[in-house]
Amino acid sequence: MHTNLFTGRDLALDVYSSNHPISIVTFEARNKHLDALKPGAFGPGFGKGRFAPQGFNEFIIRRSRNHWYQTSEMLAVAEIVNRVAAGTKVITYGGNMGGFAAINFSPLLRASAFIALSPLYDIQQGNEAGDTRWDGEGRLLDFQYNFIRAGECRKSQGYAFFCADGPDAIHAELIRRETGATLVPVPFGGHPCSFYLNDTYKLKPLVSEIASGSFDLDRFYAVLDQRTLDTHYPYERASILQERSGNIGEATRQARIAVSKNDGLKRLQVRLGNLLLKEGDLDGAEMAFKRAIGMRPVDPVAHIRLSYVYAARRNFDDAVAEMERAILMDPIRAEYHVRLGEWLVRKGDLVAAERAMMRAIELKPDAVVAPVRLKAIRLKMGALSILGRLRRN
Score class of each variant (00 low, 15 high):
residue 52 A to L: 10
residue 53 P to K: 13
residue 53 P to G: 09
residue 53 P to Y: 10
residue 55 G to K: 12
residue 57 N to D: 15
residue 58 E to P: 07
residue 58 E to N: 12
residue 60 I to R: 09
residue 60 I to K: 02
residue 61 I to N: 00
residue 62 R to W: 05
residue 66 N to Q: 08
residue 68 W to D: 07
residue 70 Q to D: 05
residue 70 Q to I: 03
residue 71 T to F: 02
residue 71 T to D: 09
residue 73 E to M: 06
residue 74 M to N: 08
residue 77 V to E: 08
residue 79 E to I: 10
residue 79 E to Q: 15
residue 81 V to M: 11
residue 83 R to W: 03
residue 84 V to G: 05
residue 85 A to G: 09
residue 85 A to L: 09
residue 86 A to C: 14
residue 86 A to G: 13
residue 87 G to C: 08
residue 87 G to Q: 13
residue 89 K to D: 08
residue 89 K to M: 09
residue 90 V to P: 02
residue 92 T to L: 07
residue 93 Y to C: 11
residue 93 Y to I: 07
residue 94 G to Q: 04
residue 94 G to P: 05
residue 95 G to P: 04
residue 96 N to W: 13
residue 102 A to C: 12
residue 102 A to W: 07
residue 103 I to K: 03
residue 104 N to Q: 04
residue 104 N to Y: 00
residue 104 N to P: 00
residue 105 F to V: 03
residue 105 F to E: 01
residue 106 S to N: 06
residue 111 A to P: 10
residue 113 A to G: 04
residue 114 F to Y: 13
residue 116 A to D: 10
residue 116 A to P: 06
residue 117 L to D: 08
residue 118 S to A: 14
residue 118 S to E: 05
residue 119 P to W: 01
residue 120 L to G: 07
residue 121 Y to N: 03
residue 124 Q to E: 14
residue 125 Q to T: 14
residue 125 Q to P: 02
residue 125 Q to G: 11
residue 125 Q to F: 10
residue 126 G to I: 02
residue 127 N to V: 02
residue 128 E to R: 11
residue 129 A to D: 00
residue 133 R to Y: 02
residue 134 W to T: 00
residue 134 W to K: 00
residue 135 D to F: 04
residue 137 E to R: 02
residue 138 G to F: 00
residue 139 R to Q: 12
residue 141 L to A: 04
residue 141 L to M: 08
residue 142 D to F: 06
residue 143 F to A: 08
residue 145 Y to N: 12
residue 145 Y to I: 07
residue 145 Y to A: 09
residue 146 N to E: 12
residue 146 N to L: 14
residue 149 R to K: 15
residue 149 R to F: 07
residue 150 A to C: 11
residue 150 A to L: 14
residue 151 G to W: 12
residue 151 G to T: 11
residue 154 R to Y: 10
residue 155 K to E: 14
residue 155 K to T: 13
residue 156 S to M: 13
residue 157 Q to I: 10
residue 158 G to H: 06
residue 159 Y to C: 06
residue 160 A to S: 13
residue 160 A to Y: 03
residue 161 F to P: 01
residue 161 F to G: 01
residue 162 F to S: 02
residue 164 A to K: 15
residue 164 A to M: 15
residue 164 A to P: 04
residue 165 D to W: 09
residue 166 G to F: 02
residue 166 G to A: 09
residue 168 D to P: 00
residue 168 D to V: 03
residue 168 D to S: 03
residue 169 A to G: 03
residue 170 I to D: 02
residue 170 I to S: 04
residue 170 I to P: 00
residue 170 I to H: 03
residue 171 H to W: 01
residue 173 E to F: 08
residue 174 L to Q: 05
residue 174 L to T: 03
residue 174 L to D: 00
residue 175 I to M: 08
residue 175 I to E: 06
residue 176 R to K: 15
residue 177 R to F: 05
residue 180 G to K: 09
residue 180 G to R: 09
residue 182 T to K: 15
residue 182 T to E: 13
residue 185 P to H: 08
